[in-house]
Amino acid sequence: MNTQELRFERPESLFASAPAEMRGASRDDVRLLVSAPDGHEHRRFTDLPSALRPGDLLVVNESATLPASLAAEGRLGEIRLNLSTRFGPRLWTAEPRWSPAKQGPLPVREGDVLRVGDARARLLSPYPGIPRLWFVHLDRPGEAILAERGEPIHYGYAPAYPLETYQTLFSRVPGSVEMPSAARPITPRVRSALLDTGVRIAPILLHTGVSSLEIEAATVEQQALYPEPFRVPAETARLVNETRARGGRVVAVGTTVVRALETAWSPGGVRPMAGFTRHYVNPATGVRAIDGLLTGLHDPVTSHLAMLGALVGIGRVKDAYAEAVRARYLWHEFGDSHLLWRAPAAS
């Protein structure tokens, strides 16, 4: 698919810069756009249970967010080093940036050593195909450095909030550097209402790296993606397969869940699996393991949009986004929610 097909316009006034709770509201006090092949519905997030049916399965990500952004100093002066993915205690990928608002790539070189307090980070080489991302070797475990000096990764459109702002009801295992944000509006009362409806909830684990930028390759499929650690437990694989066998629908809560389940998919169903995945869900690979996706609103020309296109077709994604812009939905991790159904919601 030509990358330009993922382009759309939306004004910056639609960037959510603060979480609902900072406005004195509840986390679930956001909007929910429900998109099905037969059209769009404008709902509140607290209406989510009524959009689902008994026997449907929500799959959530149990990954908790780390304070992964570090102030660093080196040959280029004071910069920011956002850790991305942990491959071993001291071996991570990281994105050197000028500042939270100003991205790289920076003119760093192989062998450069950055100081982070009294810790050191040596830059090994750029990630193949993703020049802004570097392999770094730390002189002590990354978790220890983050515990001492890290703050949550944030970008120009929002300040850094306390770390708990970036956790969801399901966050259990620290490891993501950016919040798997789709579940953020699921509050205890929404969860209770879901369970009362007869909807089941099952976990996977996938630790997110730094968010992707615009796809630069000419076609969507050419874009290089880096691997992320994941785990699909046996019980979740079983529930996914059982749900679909009985005619229920599997709804991924967030793009991370899509990546994990699609990685673990085989013609015989979803298999239990753990490891690292670089599987890139796009219109060429398709989507086989899920029927719906609950997510936020994504930026233009990103791999996330390609994933949405794989689920419902890029035409329907752009139609939904035109509707979201028209109705002034809010973008990014503190913004509004979007539920996409692959098939018509026959009741």
Binding site: F87, G88, S125, P229, F276
Partner: peptide
């Protein structure tokens, strides 16, 4: 890619 591109795998 340089051999360091395989380090994530070795670390894992």
């Amino acid at each position: 890619p340089l051999p360091s591109a395989t380090l994530p795998f070795w670390a894992w």
